[in-house]
């Protein structure tokens, strides 16, 4: 091993003096900026949660959940009718939208995955998710609330739980459809082949093999839809309107939590404002429970 080799200029010296220190510093600086910005987004959420608890908890009691809304200047009361109204209208929305959503998901995934109709359904469903929620309200207003003439006169008109539920159904249809499609897509193809291989018909395969396996994921989609529908105000504000009383029939104006929050947040009555916070707390809890149960159902499947 020769030590008399002429030492070549050390190229690592070139590396050290190439100004990379400034570049490395700049990179570290940007990292700090990025981390700071990411944590900045935590502040509004923490602020919302803090205020929900601080302003909402003091009035949260059994009577808040079970009594009728207080009139201006009154104390006590609650929003029991609004909780019932919200649950009722979400239920109407689900009953209307779920069959359509799941059946068309079955069509576009099981029967004709590549057909022009299926591609159109997928595209339209994506577009429907992008339609502003208030448009669902406008549509329900046009279809149900406005008085009908001629052969449509049998449809009950006016502000009603039906109208609100219908608006929510339009709102959640694309959510249910697209998540159900994903759910069916994740069912292993081998299951279908096995079923067909045993001589099952199309319907038997879908009903006994594909749907049971995809069901948890479909339920996830439904729970996400519930969360979305429960939190929405815009579609209800001029379809279900609001009511100070317990619901007597589906054909009359109906209270909902979100519209109650909207109404009470803009009054000058301090107690009603406090009630708006309590109702918000309940609504956020409701929505979060729906979201978390959606996650739990989904995880169980995995």
């Amino acid at each position: 091993m020769s030590t008399s080799t002429i030492e070549p200029p050390d190229f690592l010296d070139r590396a050290i003096t190439s100004g990379s220190g400034a570049r490395a510093f700049w990179s570290r600086f940007l990292t700090c900026v990025c981390i700071s910005l990411a944590f900045l987004t935590l502040i509004p959420l923490l602020s919302i949660i803090f205020l929900l608890l601080k302003n909402g908890l003091p009035n949260l009691s059994l009577s808040a959940l079970t009594e009728l809304p207080p009139a201006a200047g009154m104390v006590g009361g609650g929003f029991g009718n609004a909780i019932v109204g919200t649950l009722l209208m979400v239920a109407i929305g689900l009953v209307l939208a779920t069959p359509f959503g799941i059946l068309s998901a079955i069509y576009i995934n099981e029967y004709a995955p590549a057909s022009r109709l299926s591609n159109t359904v997928r595209f339209v469903a994506k577009l429907l998710t992008g339609i502003p929620s208030i448009i669902c309200g406008v549509f329900a207003y046009a279809v149900i609330v406005l008085p009908k003439t001629g052969w449509l006169a049998w449809i009950p008109s006016g502000f009603s739980a039906w109208a609100g539920g219908f608006a929510l159904a339009i709102l959640i249809l694309p959510t249910i459809l697209l998540t159900a499609e994903q759910a069916l897509m994740s069912v292993p193809h081998a299951y279908r082949e096995a079923s067909y291989g045993l001589g099952a018909t199309n319907f038997q395969t879908i009903w006994r093999v594909v749907l049971p396996d995809g069901l948890p994921a479909i339920m996830t989609g439904i729970m996400l839809a519930v969360a979305r529908a429960a939190g929405e105000t815009a579609p209800l504000i001029f379809t279900a309107l609001f009511s100070q009383y317990w619901i007597q029939s589906f054909n009359e104006p109906t209270a909902s939590l979100s519209v109650l929050i909207y109404n009470f947040s803009t009054t000058f009555d301090d107690h009603q404002k406090a009630m708006a916070w309590t109702a918000s707390l309940v609504l956020v809890i409701l929505v979060t429970v729906a979201n978390i149960s959606a996650q739990v159902i989904f995880r169980k499947k995995q």
């Binding site: 030492e7 070549p8 050390d10 690592l12 070139r14 590396a15 050290i16 190439s18 990379s20 490395a24």
Partner: peptide, 20 residues
Amino acid sequence: LLNGRSIYDKKIEVIALRRS
């Protein structure tokens, strides 16, 4: 050691090393 010099030398920036 690269050419007799440690690549883990504190003075060597890793990004400069990778350019070489």
